[in-house]
Structure formats: C-alpha cells, structure tokens
C-alpha cells in the first residue's frame, strides 16, 4: 500500500483540525449544490465504488450523488448480487473491483472493522460508510456541517467566518439506542473533539456495556436534560439488531424517551432537533416535532451530499504533499471501546 493513500475510517483519525478542514471544504460544495448546474469536473476520470454489504439506500445514494456531482464514475456493488451468493469472499470481491481500477471504496458492512480490513487489502482510498456498531464518520461530519450553519445563523455571521470554536460548550443530548448506534459513536467523538458537552440519554439496557473512556455524561431522564440542551439528537431504535428485547414495549419507550411536542417546547429557545434517519414517527419522535422548524432532519440530508463531496475530494483531489492521512498501524487506537483488528458481529451477543 502506498504510504500516501488516505482513508476516512474513523473520526478518531481526524482530530479537531481534520474535522475543521473538512467542514471548511464542505462550504464550497454547499455552494456548488445550490447552483443551477450542481456539478464540477474536479474528479473527472476517477472511479468511486460503493461496496455495501448491508441494506442502505439513503447513504449509498448520497455517496453516489456526491461522486457524480464531482464528475467521478460510480460503480455499485450490492451484497445481494451474484458473486457473494456464489460464495466469493469479501476480500476477493474488493480485490476484483480494485483490479478494475477503483480509486475510492465506500464501504458499509454489518461487522465493525471491515472498512479497516478493506483498506489493508486494496490500493485505494477507503471511506467508512458505517461498520456495525463501530462508526459512521460521514454522518457525524454532516451533522457538524449542519450545526455549524445553525450556529453561524444564530450569531448572524456568514458560515465561512464561523470557526469550530462555536462548538465550544455546546450542550448536546444524544437520545435513544446508543448501544447499537454507530452514529452515536462517531457523533460523540466528533462533537467532543470540537469541545461540545455530550450527554447520553437512554435506559440502561440501551447503553453500551461499558462507557469507559467515553467523554460523555449519562442520564436516564429526558425531561431533566432537555431544559438545558442546545441540540437534541435522536436515534432510531434498531429493531433489526435486537432492540425489541431491550425495551418493554414501544409505547413505554416512546413515553419515557420519545420527543413529543410538549418536550420539544420545554427546550431552550433556539435549541434544535436532529435525527440521522430513517425517522420512525410516533416512536422516537412525534410527527408534530419532526415537522417543526427546529427539526433539522431535511437539512441534514441535503448537507450530506455536500459533505460527502468534500470527503471524496479531500481523499482523491488534492495532492497529498504535506497532508498526512491516518497511520495504518494506529487506526482505531484512539477509539473508546476499540476492538482493534477483531471483526465483531453486531447484535450477535
């Protein structure tokens, strides 16, 4: 592997400076997205392959749209497609695609650590688009893009003039199924790196077995936290990963941890509601709240394309002189609850 190959595998590899660089780069792509012709020739001749071994339409489409708007060619690989059914291993699949001349892989898998492995196998950039309950870095970054826009508007400044210092002291509550959520892990790393104060709000059964090393506070009382929170970040209950066995009933969960209109009104003025989607109305968020102006859900999605353009351009565009990528031997070392090299099946426990 070339030493200069860059990857985006974990927020922990970026640090505050790397996050800020990507946020600033995304400003330019937000502008591109607003144009009549939202397409630039920046990555002409590059090929981006989406390698998704787990169902996801939104994230895959967001990455593919981003790649196309940069004029890159896009290859799509579905887990359900022929080769895996015929028994081909993931490594063979990745190496076969790489042999066709792929410059960047966008990898999603139900096992934590797969993108790291793919990065070791192929001579191309790798983006983690969600691996098990490990991380989903682009989701956390696009949420930071959205929050930075909101913070700039609040202060009446142009977003370009708003540095990441605006995140200092921002109070964020992450509510719901933290145990199974890769979004929550990336979110905690990104927001705490930028100086925000993160509180996890969930029943004990939906928290990870250990929070050692997590820079967070924990609460089991949503009403108590909401009065002093600037951002309420809701997570979906991941029923497909066995969440149903961890809450007595959906109704009970909704009563104690769902964001309804009454709770939303108890939040401070200017506080916002975020959700990584897909939204289950009536469970973690009431329909009324999802349609409130303070809910940024749509805005998160449209910023997703711009941020992913920034990530792909950052990986494939500029010369790497003086721009160091993560050290492959150190990857995952900075991550709380890191599982190192081992592939851990999610929800298997």
């Amino acid at each position: 592997m070339r030493a200069a190959t860059r990857h985006l595998l974990s927020i922990a590899d970026l640090g505050a400076a790397g996050i800020e660089e990507l946020l600033r780069l995304s400003d330019s792509f937000v502008e591109v997205s607003l144009r009549a012709i939202p397409k630039v020739p920046a990555l002409r001749g590059k090929t981006v392959a989406t390698l998704f071994a787990e169902d996801s339409t939104r994230t895959r489409l967001s990455f593919e749209t981003a790649a196309r708007r940069l004029s890159a060619d896009v290859m799509t690989f579905h887990a359900a497609s022929a080769s895996t059914r015929k028994g081909e291993s993931l490594r063979d699949t990745a190496e076969t695609l790489a042999a066709m001349g792929v410059d960047a892989f966008v990898v999603r898998h139900s096992c934590a650590g797969v993108p790291v492995q793919v990065a070791r196998w192929v001579d191309a950039c790798v983006v983690n688009a969600g691996d098990g309950a490990h991380e989903h870095p682009t989701q956390a970054l696009l949420d930071c893009v959205t929050l930075r826009q909101v913070l700039a508007e609040r202060d009446g400044r142009a977003v370009e003039d708003c540095g990441v210092e605006a995140f200092e002291g921002l109070r964020v509550a992450i509510v719901g199924d933290v145990r199974h959520s890769r979004v929550a892990r990336s979110e905690v790393l990104a927001l705490s790196a930028l100086g925000a104060v993160v509180t996890l709000v969930a029943p004990g059964s939906l928290l990870p077995p250990s929070l050692d090393g997590w820079p967070v506070e924990v609460s089991h009382d949503l009403d108590e936290v909401l009065g002093s929170t600037d951002v309420c970040y809701l997570l979906r209950l991941q029923v497909e990963r066995g969440t149903a066995a961890r809450v007595p009933t959906a109704h009970e969960y909704s009563t104690f941890y769902g964001l309804n209109a009454r709770r939303a009104r108890s939040m401070p003025e200017g506080a916002v509601v975020m959700h990584p989607g897909p939204v289950v109305r009536g469970l973690e968020i009431s329909s009324e709240v999802a349609d409130m102006p303070r809910a940024l859900i749509r805005r998160q999605v449209s910023n997703g394309v711009a941020l992913r353009m920034a990530v792909l351009f950052w990986l494939l565009g500029p010369d790497r002189i003086g721009l160091e990528g993560p050290d492959m031997d150190r990857i995952g070392a900075g991550h709380p609850g890191s599982t190192g090299d081992a592939l851990v099946e999610v929800g298997g426990a």
């Binding site: 780069l25 330019s28 920046a42 990555l43 370009e160 565009g317 500029p318 010369d319 721009l323």
Partner: peptide
C-alpha cells in the same frame, strides 16, 4: 488537480 495541492481558498 492531483499534480499539486488544489484546495478551494474561499467560497
């Protein structure tokens, strides 16, 4: 792009 560092300088 790719021959030298090309990053946007302003929006």
């Amino acid at each position: 792009i790719g021959l030298r560092p090309v990053l946007p300088e302003a929006v």
